[in-house]
Amino acid sequence: MDAFDPAWVALRLSLKVALWATLIDLLLGVALGYLLARKRFPGRELLDAVLTLPMVMPPTVLGYYLLVIIGRNGVLGAWLQQMGINLIFTWQAAVIAAAVVAFPLVLKGARAAFENMDLQLEQAARVLGVSSFGVFLRVTLPLAWRGVLGGTLLAFARSMGEFGATLMVAGSIPGKTQTLSIAVYEAVQAGQDDHANLLVIVTSVVCVTVLIAANKLTPNRALAV
């Protein structure tokens, strides 16, 4: 039973971090995905490239950028520090790191879903007098939900496995910031192979389950980059 206690604590923390990160990504990803899919403005593709950058950038580099922004002497961190708020080495910092790393998955899924919709259905709703916001809630989002949900599930799985950026901004404090992926690293470093194997199995089962769900819900074209 003792072997399962640390794994259970790490699993609960990983789920907590992944859920909050995915919620943030869902809200921002849908909004920005709709903006990029439907609006034409100067710098649109540049904005898309910048927002997609976490998908290809090394996690440690992202972690460094986050330290520059939310660290105690960072652009935002110094201001928060004056208000008595410290994000570094907290589970909230792990949420921010996971959200940044996984965000492109929601963005790409949402944008592709919005771009591949039949716009005539939206136009018909407007002719019937439905407001723009009403059209989005009652027509656009229901039609795009498979692509959005598929990207969201992939973002959740990615958040569960985030390591590099999380380690840099949240550290490895057991019970506070030590997620499953970091716990695996610490167990291997300590030569605790049995504990590492247990953590790997738990992580793999959770991520495989999410990926199977994502594959069933997501059209192949919805995640095309």
Score class of each variant (00 low, 15 high):
Pro174Leu: 08
Gly175Met: 08
Phe163Arg: 03
Leu180Ile: 10
Gly150Leu: 10
Val148Asp: 10
Phe136Tyr: 11
Leu154Trp: 05
Val139Met: 02
Ser181Arg: 04
Leu143Asp: 14
Arg138Gln: 12
Gly151Trp: 02
Leu137Cys: 14
Gly164Trp: 14
Glu186Cys: 00
Thr140Ile: 10
Met168Asp: 11
Phe156Met: 15
Trp145Pro: 00
Ala187Gln: 05
Thr179Phe: 01
Trp145Phe: 10
Val148His: 02
Glu162Ala: 09
Leu153His: 10
Ala183Thr: 09
Asp193Tyr: 09
Ala190Met: 06
Ala187Phe: 01
Gln189Cys: 00
Gly171Arg: 02
Ile182Gln: 11
Gly161His: 04
Ala170Asp: 13
Val169Cys: 03
Leu167His: 05
Gly164Asp: 15
Leu180Gln: 05
Tyr185Gly: 00
Ile182Val: 15
Ala165Asn: 13
Thr177Ile: 10
Gly161Phe: 03
Ala157Phe: 10
Phe136Trp: 14
Val139Phe: 02
Arg138Gly: 00
Val169Phe: 02
Gln189His: 07
Gly191Lys: 04
Thr152Val: 01
Gly175His: 07
Trp145Cys: 03
Leu180Glu: 07
Thr177Glu: 14
Ser172Gly: 05
Gln189Val: 12
Arg138Ser: 09
Leu180Trp: 03
Gly147Asp: 14
Gln192Glu: 13
Val139Leu: 02
Val169Pro: 04
Leu154Lys: 02
Ala144Met: 10
Lys176Val: 05
Ala170Val: 12
Val188Ser: 05
Gln189Arg: 15
Lys176Met: 01
Gly191Cys: 07
Asp193Met: 10
Met160Asn: 06
Ser159His: 02
Thr140Gln: 12
Arg158Asp: 09
Pro142Trp: 09
Leu137Glu: 02
Gln192Tyr: 02
Tyr185Arg: 05
Gly151Glu: 05
Ala187Lys: 02
Gly171Gln: 06
Gly151Thr: 03
Ser181Tyr: 03
Val169Thr: 09
Ser172Met: 15
Lys176Gly: 00
Trp145Asp: 01
Arg146Ser: 12
Ala157Lys: 08
Gly150Tyr: 13
Gly191Met: 08
Ala170Leu: 09
Gly151Cys: 07
Glu186Val: 14
Gln178Leu: 00
Gly164Met: 13
Asp194Thr: 10
Leu180Lys: 04
Phe156Pro: 01
Leu141Asn: 14
Val169Trp: 02
Gln189Glu: 15
Leu137Arg: 14
Arg138Met: 08
Gln189Ser: 13
Glu186Phe: 00
Met168Lys: 09
Gly175Phe: 05
Glu186Pro: 00
Thr166Gly: 09
Lys176Tyr: 01
Val148Leu: 08
Leu167Asn: 06
Ala187Glu: 07
Leu149Glu: 02
Pro174Trp: 08
Ser172Gln: 15
Thr140Val: 13
Gln189Pro: 00
Arg146Pro: 01
Val148Arg: 06
Leu180His: 04
Ile182Trp: 08
Ser181Ile: 04
Thr179Glu: 04
Ala183Pro: 07
Gly191Ala: 07
Gly161Gln: 04
Leu143Trp: 08
Leu180Asp: 06
Thr140Pro: 01
Pro174Asn: 12
Met160Ser: 06
Ala155Glu: 11
Ala165Gln: 11
Ala183Val: 10
Ser172Trp: 06
Leu149Ile: 11
Met160Gln: 06
